[in-house]
Nucleic acid binder design. Structure first.
Lengths: 197, 197
DNA sequence: TGAATACTTTACACAGTGTAAATTGACTTA
DNA sequence: TAAGTCAATTTACACTGTGTAAAGTATTCA
């Protein structure tokens, strides 16, 4: 009757999510997730083909919880490219800490197996699309600084806002979210785009 | 008589270097290196404690071949911070492709074991020191833009010139070394430092 | 002759992922 | 109540790659 009747798939996804965040994405084994979800390790393979598939599904699940799609839509609907840019960087700085463990797990195994790499790339598609859109809009508004095409601008922006860059600055160097946003916008505004207006 | 009498350690280091570059740092096993060096897999452990130690030693060896120390000394000796900055970015853009496989191998295993992480960090110490030095010099010359302290400037510079950033732009996005240098200098000059003079 | 050195050979322990198959228990349907 | 279905469990094992251990071989040196 009550929502206690959680199905196994959801139990696994929750356990995976909690464990990945708790351990910051490193050294989480299938057996650990199974134990946390109170199912057998084999049950995991009944629902997901591989560890990569599980982590990937967990990311989708978390994105759903955070209503990422709606947030992106909101940002896309903003009036000017400037507004979209700063809203997006702000969103990004709030989003990354929420999925840190998950992102780290995916990013770390990215090089090791084919499937992980693909899973990571898939995550990054939406991010790159947004960067491309903003760079495009800036181009339309004639705001690209000397020496930048829209593609190169998008690529630089994409990498400036990449996960490893955020991790290095926010986690390892201890920058606050505000400092991160402010300085990233500074770099973008001064480096790639012509000052507002 | 001839230099054919290469000792085993050197044979292993050469094999490791060639294989790592050839395979771009991914999927190179101890057995593969042994085979390439024409020694037994166990001989590797006679000379190096672990795979991480071997890769790390290979990096030292390659740095020696490329006379990295001398290059760094040359750059440090330049007159102005501006000259040092552009010489360093140029050096970096020439150096990274030469050690791509090696760097990728170290970077990828960085998260997995303690020792690899330490080995990577050790590589990065010199890089960060140079960034710090340049940011410092810029500060001395009163060239830091509004909103940047020397530490934050050094951190941003360090990460802008990080391996994953270079890899993304030069390898994945296909930027030429020239384009990389030019755009990085643009970002640094406009984003962090006040224009020349 | 005999000891030291450097390497080889063979064997194995260990971790973690993924597969396979037989078994259990609960719920459905006739 | 019996048969059938489905999800999960249990147990066992294959596989990969790193690292360890120990006995054997070949060369050099004294």
């Amino acid at each position: 009757m009550s929502s206690v009747t959680q199905n196994t798939r959801a139990k696994i996804l929750n356990a995976a999510r909690n464990l990945l965040e708790e351990k910051q994405g490193i050294g989480v084994r299938m057996g650990d997730i199974a134990k946390a979800a109170k199912v057998s390790r084999q049950a995991l393979y009944l629902h997901f083909d591989s560890k990569t598939a599980l982590v990937s599904a967990t990311r989708d699940y978390v994105d759903q919880i955070h209503k990422v799609d709606a947030q992106i839509a909101r940002i896309t609907a903003l009036e000017t490219a400037d507004l979209r840019l700063s809203a997006y960087v702000t969103f990004w700085a709030e989003y990354l800490p929420k999925i840190y463990g998950l992102a780290r797990a995916l990013y770390a195994s990215r090089e090791l197996d084919e499937a992980s790499g693909a899973a990571w790339d898939e995550c990054m598609v939406a991010h790159f699309a947004m960067c491309q859109k903003i760079a495009n809009d800036m181009g339309q508004e004639n705001r690209l600084a000397q020496g930048w095409g829209t593609l190169e601008a998008a690529q630089m922006m994409f990498n400036l806002l990449s996960f490893p860059m955020w991790e290095a600055l926010a986690i390892h160097s201890g920058w606050s979210a505000d400092a991160y946003v402010k300085r990233m916008l500074t770099m973008l505004d001064r480096g790639i785009f012509n000052g507002p207006r």
